[in-house]
């Protein structure tokens, strides 16, 4: 699950993940999507850029 806030500055980024993922998968440039979402600082940008969703991989082992 995407963290609720940026680890470094505390900006709420939990609500941005789904739109970011959708637009990134549609072929948009990740950097431009982040600019568009208002994610300005590089601490918050890395939160979304480097996130990997592993919830679906965990499910069979519950």
């Amino acid at each position: 699950m995407i963290p609720v806030r940026c680890f470094t500055c505390g900006k709420v980024i939990g609500g941005l993940w789904e739109e970011y993922k959708e637009r990134r998968d549609a072929g948009e440039d990740p950097g431009e999507v982040l600019d568009d979402l208002g994610v300005e600082r590089y601490c918050c940008r890395r939160m979304l850029l480097t996130h990997l969703e592993i919830v679906d991989k965990f499910v069979p082992y519950q």
Binding site: M1, V12, G15, E18
Partner: peptide
Amino acid sequence: DDNILIVD
């Protein structure tokens, strides 16, 4: 914010 994902 209404759209913060808590858990799936």
